[in-house]
Design a binder for these strands. Structure first.
Lengths: 344, 344
DNA sequence: TTGAAAGCGTTACCAC
DNA sequence: GTGGTAACGCTTTCAA
């Protein structure tokens, strides 16, 4: 049976209150006694009991404010599902999740939304936001004021956030290239569709992709690259134009959103039948992507466990409040998961 | 704030003890009052608080006895790791894990080991055993005597086990075939290596595999099948002989253990260079398999999240004790995970 | 600077 | 049949 505060108190010959004060550095204890208590706690191997802690902490419930630019982007739905799954599990432990959904990536909007969450009484934050100076500065202020912050899906550089929970974008690119290295037996003429060249994650996927193609000695030529701006209509028109003008393209690598648009162009041109083999790779598995994999338009889609991302972000914040000792990881990277029709 | 027993007691005008007795069907309460209490609890939406429950339950700690035939089979190491991870998380909640490792699949050995776990005071069991009548009968007796049982990695048919935690073997086979459908551009001449034709999981993988090959219209011919008996030496010799005599083989599908042996034969015959393309697929990612994937001998290895299996099995048993309400799933299937060099 | 006690929600046990 | 009370481990507050 584990050591309790009571036992330490008995061993030292003081009251539980005193031990508690020492263990939480709350001061007001004679230094020599404090030192003694610390030593005894250490040698007895004291670890606070979570159940007791949680129960006592019910007087100050935890509210986690979550910011997520999910409006218009179904990918984030799974992340949000993860938030709520964690909330269900932790409801008895006094945890409530408040999700603020917004549209797009305007820094002003993001800052306003975060402020709203804080004003609504969030004791912790869990945010997926833009890595821009103004936002970083504001978040750092909040952290300094004592609000722990976890970044989800995309990180904030140069901040004192507790932890980043999300995917390893480089590895996603490596994996896509690895699949092609295994499957492709002729020179690849590539069309790459990215979301935005301003988004670090997208660029890293491309970097990882081309590096591994080279390392594996795959013959390839980059025919064209364009930014979908996460817009299916625009992606459709642009892809249609490029694919029409460049019939030699035999591999389309879609790094971000716009998947459905690009695939519509591929299907309309009948490229899955005419151009053999023709490889199509994408990321994530929103509903439309799943359908395209099922219909044989997309060969592989590489996923990043979005539900896990939301779930773990909340769990990590909870642990931060409950376990003084347990070390919180700097980064929590979710898996790079290859999906095909059969295991989707 | 959630409803508590205290509040219900106040609302009804009885003591907490009485409410508790009713809610746990422990009898000794006047039927009409009991009914009333039940109704009030229901309309107030009472849900027991886990933190409170756990704390009070510390007087009767939970010991989970785990049986696993891991000696000589490194695959199970990850499952065991999952057991211990769960124990660490739940130690404060009074959960202890006791792992009994044995060698092989002799029913008598298994029954003896289970008895040992029970005699050592296990309040729940988590077992990976053989699906044989004697074992089933014995396990059913234990279940009837009040010990909840979860099966891990391989199920026990016709028993009242709480839940099966493990992989979907059919899907594993489907996925392997799906990968070949995407990659292979010529007729497949197959060598299938299974562990034992007596093991249901192995057979299901093969069944799923051939069904999907057919459905996807892949041309193939089964050149040979043999049982490795999970023995690398035997697998090496047999594979060497078969591959030597059948140089047309261009795809080796390894369903179970013996991977290192088979791959040694493939490497020695230089088949990864001579026979192009040559496809090699296996299951799981023990150390030796990882090396073979890294060295380019194995193209794909399909994994089943073994750590999750051990972890979830313990969590499910814990939930069974702590949450009267929450419904325990009949089956908890772990993911079918495709691994290549780049995402291993 | 320290001790004592109350309270978080649940369960168990002993009186009545 | 039922109520009261102590206990689980921890935090917090009040009194000394």
């Amino acid at each position: 049976m584990a050591v309790t505060i009571k036992e330490i108190a008995a061993a030292v010959g003081v009251s539980r209150g005193t031990v508690d004060r020492v263990l939480h550095n709350r001061g007001g204890v004679k230094p020599e006694i404090a030192e003694h208590i610390r030593r005894v706690a250490d040698t007895m191997g004291y670890l606070p009991n979570r159940a007791g802690k949680i129960l006592a902490a019910r007087k100050q419930p935890i509210t986690v404010g979550c910011l997520i630019p999910s409006i218009g982007n179904p990918f984030y739905d799974d992340v949000i599902r993860g938030f709520y799954t964690a909330q269900e599990e932790l409801a008895d432990f006094g945890v409530t999740v408040k999700v603020k959904e917004i549209r797009g990536y305007d820094p002003g909007d993001h800052i306003r939304a975060i402020k709203e969450l804080v004003d609504a009484g969030s004791s912790a934050l869990c945010i997926s936001t833009v890595d821009i100076a103004e936002v970083r500065t504001y978040v750092n202020q909040l952290i300094d004021s004592g609000i722990p912050v976890v970044t989800v899906n995309t990180d904030l550089s140069h901040t004192k956030r507790l932890c980043y929970v999300g995917s390893d974008y480089l590895k996603g690119g490596h994996t896509a290239a690895g699949l092609l290295s295994l499957c492709a037996r002729q020179k690849l003429n590539l069309l790459i569709v990215t979301g935005s060249l301003k988004i670090k994650g997208h660029n890293e996927r491309i970097k990882g992709f081309s590096r591994t193609l080279r390392e594996n000695g795959v013959q390839y030529k980059l025919v064209d690259v364009f930014e979908s701006q996460d817009d299916d209509d625009y992606a459709y028109k642009t892809a249609l134009d490029i694919l029409w003008k460049n019939p030699q393209i035999n591999c389309v690598f879609i790094v971000a959103a716009g998947v459905a648009g690009v695939c519509r162009a591929i299907a309309e041109l009948g490229l899955r039948e005419k151009q053999r083999p023709m490889w199509v790779l994408s990321f994530d598995d929103v509903e439309s992507t799943r359908r395209l994999v099922n219909d044989g338009i997309i060969d592989f889609t590489i996923c990043q466990e979005p539900v896990q991302q939301g779930y773990q972000a909340i769990q990590i914040l909870f642990n931060y409040f409950v376990d003084d000792k347990r070390t919180i990881p700097q980064n929590f990277l979710t898996g790079t998961v290859i999906k095909i029709k059969e295991n989707l």
